[in-house]
Design a protein around this nucleic acid. Sequence first.
DNA 1: TCGTCAACTGGACTCGCGGTACAGCGGGGA
DNA 2: TCCCCGCTGTACCGCGAGTCCAGTTGACGA
Lengths: 207, 207
Amino acid sequence: MDQKTDTRSRILDIAEAAVLDKGFEATSIEEIVAGAEISRGGFFYHFKDKNALARAMLERYIETEEQLYDDLFARARELNDDPLHCMLIGLKLLAEQLADMPTGHPGCVIASTAYQDRLFDEGVRDLNRQAILGWRKRFRGMLDEIAAVYEPREPVNMDALGDMVSGVVEGGLVLQRALREHNNASEQIMLFRTYLKLLFAPKPERF
Amino acid sequence: MDQKTDTRSRILDIAEAAVLDKGFEATSIEEIVAGAEISRGGFFYHFKDKNALARAMLERYIETEEQLYDDLFARARELNDDPLHCMLIGLKLLAEQLADMPTGHPGCVIASTAYQDRLFDEGVRDLNRQAILGWRKRFRGMLDEIAAVYEPREPVNMDALGDMVSGVVEGGLVLQRALREHNNASEQIMLFRTYLKLLFAPKPERF
DNA sequence: TCGTCAACTGGACTCGCGGTACAGCGGGGA
DNA sequence: TCCCCGCTGTACCGCGAGTCCAGTTGACGA
């Protein structure tokens, strides 16, 4: 069963790299088995079809992404206890992370799956949904903490503001993919950070 | 030649609807020709392959989108001459437009094309790039006008801020597609609007 | 009236890819 | 010793994209 895990995750590694690079549809099972140095039969032994592969990839991807956010904001919290500053530090770290992505195409699987959803089954679509709802909850929670200390200078829909983190990253990734540029997502996050600074800055009513 | 145009644009209509609904890959030529009531031969008479169809669709789509933005901000300009207020009105109109989208799946073709780009040729990818660069230029221009009157309260990368309009829409569309909600894009635009209000609000240095 | 050309129809065929089925094989544990 | 897990290898199917091409229909000009 160690071997099983080994081959299985090797398939997932190869597939993930290929999918991030070219998209799911453009990645053939043929090239995955070639890359993983197994037979076609071997592939279908681990995954009953491409859908199962997609689901497994998404699960793994979401898990590591979740872990990354946990680590990021845990570090931010260590550096500053204030919820606003913690958020601002976390976003800065996130922006740096996005800018540092190796060959420049991190390409969030979520968006790509969302746009080809009819090719996938309900399970995959649901995973996708749950991941985004998870992010909403996470950021909404942090924003609530901030709002408890700093009153927003303009009324905003807090759920939507939580979504904005995900949205801005996804949007940025779309842009950098289409434009073949490298740090749109990172810059968009920095802009969002400035937004929060402006929105929650103490009101200048000292007079 | 009237008939040619007729059949051709009928194909494009059917294809566009199907692609917005299910994505490009999931739309078969079979169903397009069935919908347009022509033969497979007829389809290939107008488009040498699926790529040519994609290019034609993108061209048409970008054109109407460009027109929509022109109209929107022209109307906004009529209502208010001040560049900031014009922008704010335009964004409000855009948000309403996004919220009003018929069955709820406007689904910007740009993002979907970006994420499946390896399925397309260089021509399609370039169209995509040019469209986004066009938006950058448009919004960057409007922001410059604003910045000439109102000094931003925080330093920001103006190109990135221009991209944020597209990014926020694209990101919102990804969210609403994945979540099966209906007005994320519209809400994200409204949040961006608030951002601009905060960023360019006259500094409270009356004292 | 005839020829021509554009705009198709219809059918036969190739190819690649996803997916199925199944027989066999090597090695490690009970 | 036997069995089962984790594969290999091969043969086969269906679908959708794309090619080729021969033939039809209608408009329009000489």
